Computed example of a mutant assay.
Amino acid sequence: MGVFAQQKETIYQFKVKDLYGREFDFAKLKGKKIMIVNTASKCGLTPQYEDLQELYDTYKSDNFIIIGFPANNFASQEPGTNEEIATFCKENYGVTFPMMSKISVKGDDMNAVYQFLTEKKQNGLKDSEVEWNFQKYLINEKGELEKVIAPRVLPTDPEIVNWIKS
C-alpha cells in the first residue's frame, strides 16, 4: 500500500442517477463547495427542506451546491417513489437543488457515495455514521470531505454559512 494509502479519495469518482433517472456526474462539480444531505419526506426534520432551499438560493451563485439523497433508512420516513419524492419536494418546498434517486445510506446496501462519506479509509477525514435524516456532509472545492454536521443542526447554522463563505 505505502504512499497510496495516504491519498485522499474525492467525491468526483462517483456517478449516480438523479430523481428523474438521468446520470449525475460529481466530476462536473469540481471547484464548487458541496453539501450532501440525506432527506426524507415524513420526518420531524423535513421542514429543513425550506432552509436548504433558502441556503441554495442564497449561495448557488457563489460556487455552492446542495445534493439531496432521499433515503428510507430511518423509521420508514421516505416511503415514496422517486416520482412522489420529486412532487413532494417541488410542491411543498419549491426545491430546485439537485435531488438524486432514492438510496440507502447505511447497512449492507449502503450506496457507494455514502461509503465514501462515512469511511475514513476512503475520505481521509473520519469515520462517521448517518445518525438520522438530514445529516450533512460538507465537501470542499477539491472534492474532499471537510465536515460532518449532525441532522438537527439547521442548514442555516452559522457553522455552515461561515464554511460556505470562507
Rank of each mutant, 00 (worst) to 15 (best):
Y59E: 10
Y59R: 09
Y59F: 15
K60Y: 04
K60L: 06
S61E: 14
N63I: 07
F64P: 03
F64D: 01
I66K: 05
I66G: 02
I66T: 11
I67M: 04
G68Y: 06
G68D: 05
F69I: 10
F69Q: 04
P70Y: 03
P70W: 06
A71C: 15
N72H: 01
N72T: 02
N72L: 00
N73T: 04
N73Y: 11
F74H: 02
A75T: 11
S76R: 00
S76A: 12
Q77L: 07
Q77F: 05
Q77R: 01
Q77N: 06
Q77E: 14
E78H: 03
P79V: 12
P79T: 11
G80E: 12
N82H: 04
E83W: 01
E83F: 04
E84I: 13
I85N: 02
A86Q: 09
A86R: 12
A86Y: 11
T87M: 03
T87L: 10
F88P: 09
F88S: 06
F88M: 09
C89P: 05
C89N: 11
C89F: 06
K90M: 07
E91M: 12
E91I: 15
E91N: 12
N92Q: 09
N92Y: 04
Y93P: 07
Y93E: 03
Y93L: 08
Y93D: 02
G94T: 14
G94I: 15
G94Q: 09
V95W: 05
P98K: 08
M99D: 04
M99E: 04
M100T: 14
M100S: 03
M100H: 05
S101C: 04
I103M: 06
I103A: 07
S104Q: 14
V105K: 07
K106W: 05
G107T: 02
G107Y: 13
D108S: 14
M110F: 00
A112C: 00
A112Q: 13
A112H: 08
V113Q: 10
V113H: 11
V113T: 08
V113C: 07
Y114S: 05
Y114P: 08
Y114F: 15
Q115L: 14
F116W: 15
F116Y: 15
F116V: 01
L117Q: 08
E119M: 12
K120E: 15
K120T: 06
K120I: 08
K120R: 13
K121T: 13
Q122M: 13
G124A: 07
L125T: 06
D127L: 10
S128I: 01
S128P: 03
S128H: 08
E129I: 12
V130R: 02
E131T: 02
W132T: 00
F134N: 04
F134Q: 04
K136L: 03
Y137C: 03
L138S: 04
L138K: 09
L138V: 08
L138F: 13
I139V: 14
N140C: 02
E141V: 14
E141F: 14
E141I: 13
K142A: 10
K142R: 11
G143Q: 05
E144K: 06
L145I: 10
K147Y: 15
K147H: 14
V148H: 00
V148M: 01
I149E: 00
A150Q: 12
A150Y: 13
A150T: 09
A150P: 01
P151H: 03
P151L: 04
R152N: 08
R152Q: 12
V153Y: 05
L154P: 11
L154S: 15
L154H: 12
D157H: 15
P158Y: 11
P158D: 11
I160V: 15
V161P: 04
